[in-house]
């Protein structure tokens, strides 16, 4: 294995991107991703906050402490992972983190590993999804993505600029990818317009250092209020409105998440006033 450290976008040529490595390193070690060439993109990806633009290389720790960052995003970063992980984790890497589904992490031959079934749906799924779960029942673990989805963030890559929502897709039989990013495409920046008010509420099973059981981000702008959820669907999940919670399709052991989501959505909206 080799490690390249390009200093400009022009030098990019294949390989597996690595920023903080919090996802890449364990996945490499487990043989879930493989690479001959690792490309350390820290010299390429912008870092820091300028106006509404956030460099994809900014760490969650930096975002958590930056008063210019909208509340929902700041709180999502503050409650994510552990302090050391937040110090290492880049925003871009966070948006692209893989599922925490234990079957997937343990390499059960499930659909996301190009297999034929969803082991979680038939098996142990108490932490899994309540929406969009008929093909793969995994629950997207990013607090940050839910916050950005509620904030209607836009993503600028080396090739295009898209709404954050367009970064994600539900996997299906024909195409099992969960993002629309193409090979070699690098996320450079995320842009968010300052909302009138925003908030992030997170249900965890300990007070810190826990993935979202259910995370609820809400943001009010001139155009209305957006609500997005973490931990409830294979991808960050945008609700049409609070009553959308009732359209959940929980698995037998994820019904509890609907109750939690309902309560947190109500509270988030109340907080926005």
């Amino acid at each position: 294995m080799e490690l390249l450290r390009p200093s400009s976008v022009d030098e990019l040529d294949g390989g597996l991107f690595i920023h903080g490595g919090t996802e890449v390193v364990p996945l490499l070690r487990d043989g879930i991703v493989r690479a001959e060439t690792l490309v350390d993109v820290r010299g390429v990806v912008p870092r820091g906050v300028t106006g509404g633009r956030i460099g994809a290389g900014t760490t969650l720790a930096e975002l958590e402490a930056d008063a210019r960052v909208p509340d929902a995003l700041r709180e999502a970063c503050r409650l994510a992972a552990s302090p050391q992980l937040r110090n290492m984790s880049s925003l871009g890497g966070n948006l692209l983190q893989s599922t925490r589904c234990w079957y997937w992490r343990l390499k059960f031959p499930c659909r996301l590993h190009d297999g034929e079934r969803c082991h979680a749906a038939d098996g142990e799924h108490r932490e899994h999804a309540i929406f969009g779960n008929d093909y793969c029942a995994s629950a997207h673990p990013s607090d940050v993505a839910a916050a950005l989805l509620a904030l209607d963030g836009r993503v600028r890559t080396t090739r295009r600029e898209i709404a954050l929502a367009e970064l994600y897709r539900l996997p299906d039989e024909a195409d099992r990818r969960m993002t629309t990013l193409e090979p070699g495409e690098l996320i450079l920046e995320v842009e968010v317009q300052p909302p009138a008010a925003s908030t992030y509420l997170k249900a965890m099973d300990r007070k810190r250092w826990s993935f979202p059981q259910v995370g609820v981000a809400a943001a009010r702008t001139g155009g209305g209020t957006r609500i997005a959820l973490a931990g409830v669907a294979p991808v960050p999940w945008l609700l049409d409105g609070p009553e959308d919670v009732e359209r959940a399709t929980p698995l037998p052991r994820t019904a509890w998440k609907v109750d939690v989501a309902r309560a947190l959505v109500r509270r988030a909206l109340a907080e926005l006033g």
């Binding site: 925490r100 234990w102 098996g123 108490r126 099973d205 300990r206 007070k207 250092w209």
Partner: peptide, 29 residues
């Protein structure tokens, strides 16, 4: 409140094999 070793009922394999899935209290708890 938070700890539980989970197992796949079909294969008998332990699913909570790492400390992100098997959750012990932190100082915040």
């Amino acid at each position: 409140l938070s700890e539980q070793r989970l197992m796949d009922e079909e294969t008998g394999r332990v699913l909570t094999t790492s400390l992100d899935a098997y959750r012990m209290p932190t100082i915040a708890d």
